[in-house]
Each structure stands twice: as C-alpha cells, then as structure tokens.
Design a protein around this nucleic acid. Sequence first.
DNA 1: GGCAATGATTAGACAAGGTCTAATTATTAA
DNA 2: TTAATAATTAGACCTTGTCTAATCATTGCC
Lengths: 143, 143
Amino acid sequence: MVKNEYSLSRDNLPEMLRSHGITPTHQRIEIAHVLFSRQEHLSADQILAIVNGRTPETSKATVYNTLNLFLDKKLIREVIVDPSKVFYDPNTKPHHHFYNVDSGELMDIDASGVHISGLPPLPAGMATEGVDVIVRIRSSSAS
Amino acid sequence: MVKNEYSLSRDNLPEMLRSHGITPTHQRIEIAHVLFSRQEHLSADQILAIVNGRTPETSKATVYNTLNLFLDKKLIREVIVDPSKVFYDPNTKPHHHFYNVDSGELMDIDASGVHISGLPPLPAGMATEGVDVIVRIRSSSAS
DNA sequence: GGCAATGATTAGACAAGGTCTAATTATTAA
DNA sequence: TTAATAATTAGACCTTGTCTAATCATTGCC
C-alpha cells in the first residue's frame, strides 16, 4: 500500500531529509511523518495540533520554519484556495484540485490525463513556474 | 474605449448599483468607481488607500462590507493566488490568470479560447461552481 | 417638506494566520 | 569532549479581516 513516494516509516525519514539537504531533527521528523503518513492537505495549525497531540513538543515557530523549509526544498507544495489559510500538500507530483467550497475539502486530480489548450503565449521573458487548476464544486442540491 | 461592461461615469453608477439591488451610497459609489474605472486587480487595503486618497471618507469596515456585498451580488470576483491577501477583480466574464510570483502582478487570460480536457467526473451529487486556472510565471532569467 | 423606521457607516476592539527576535538548546565535526 | 554552528522556543508583534454598539444617512409615507 504505497501511498506516497516516500516511505511512511519514521526510520527512513532521517535519511530522506538528509538526501534533500535537511538536517534531521526530532521536530522535523515528526512534522515530515505527519505529512507523509497521510494523504491529506493540512494547514499549519492542524499540523501543530497533531504534532502536539500527546504532549507539547513543537512550537508554532518551528512548524512554520519547517514547512517553509520543506517548501523550499520541494518536499511539499502549497495549495492556495482558501483566503484564510494555506494548505500544505505532501503530493508533489503534477496534479490539480477539486475544492468543495462548502466544506473546505480538497481532493487531488492527477494531472497526467488533463490537457489545457488555447492558453495565450507567455509575456516576453517569462517562464512558466506551474499551472494550477482549481475546480470549485458544491453540493448540487444546495442553492 | 470601453474597458468594462459598466460605464466608467460616476453618474451612471447609482443606477447600476440599484439595478443589482444595492442602495447607492456615497461610499459604495466611490468604491465602485475605483473598481470599474480601472482594469486592475486590487486588494482591500489598496482600495481603502485610493478611496481615502485626498481626505479620509471611508472606513475599513465599510470597504470590507462593500466588497463582500459586491461579491454577493456578483458585481466583482475574488482572486485567491496570494496567501496573504485577496484580490478583487471587476472583470466577471469567464477568465483565468497569469500570476507573476515575483512581482505579485496579475494578468487576465480570456477564457473563451481556453479548453480543459481530461478532468475526471465530479464526485456524486456535486456541481461545478467554477474552474480557475492560474499560470504561475516568473522571469526566465531569474533562478 | 418633515419624520419615523430602517439600513449604512464608523472607530476601535478583537481574532487568526503568520513572522520576528533574542535567548536557550541541540547537532555536528574534529 | 568541546567549540562552533544550526535549530528551537516563548512570546511579542504585524497584517488581514471581522465584530460591536453607537452614530448617521436614506427612504417611504403622511
């Protein structure tokens, strides 16, 4: 049951972090474990709550530091769909999202089958960094 | 030089607002004028600053109240690309965006020529509210 | 026009997400 | 083991956005 490109085992995480140029600390390993052992889009405050579930062991500053470090090292991705908070996505393979505007739930759409045609040429001297498609959905019974 | 579906003249704005079920007040007319006389994506604090350019005449609360009212009445649209602030878009025709991740600049992409194929079927009981495409770009000389 | 009743605006307190700082603590290389 | 460096921390701080209770404008009606 491989859900992710990285193994779920805590034992393998230090080496994985090291291979991305990140010195593995207790807090970073715990945060990585939370992200990679789930197939979920989590916000910083959710990660903070999970990591400190049993006993407080990681500060808010470290959670943000670590998430930004993981972003920088391309271990995770930001998903910006909600004006009030950022979601962090452990899936770095090309993909898009369904976003349930009522519940706030996010679902992945694999990008391999999706094709976008008719986009205009880029402005001069610009390169594409990425293309995000967000399909906003809601219950069809709701108004 | 028609830049928008609504006339730029302040004189026509009261009737336009009324036709959307909005009672036209001084502040709402000014905010509408700021939005519809420009082809720009503005944040709430930018609108607040422009409206109060000469002399302070509109409070922060009113700017937010009015923007949310205009959103509700479908006069404007929200654009969520920056984790720190929402942009308000006076263009309500279907369109997508180029987003310059370095400068924060947003540019419209008319949706009429754009086609997206290969999206999976919607989850059961769900309807599409809208599809947003964000092409994140950056200067190709930058790292 | 004048006058309630209703709706809009206001200042400022408040809330939440996220950043910063200076001090402490952990990791690392030797 | 130790010295140097890097990571973590608590809590202050900042910014975006919301809320509240009081004031002010708009409107329909006589």
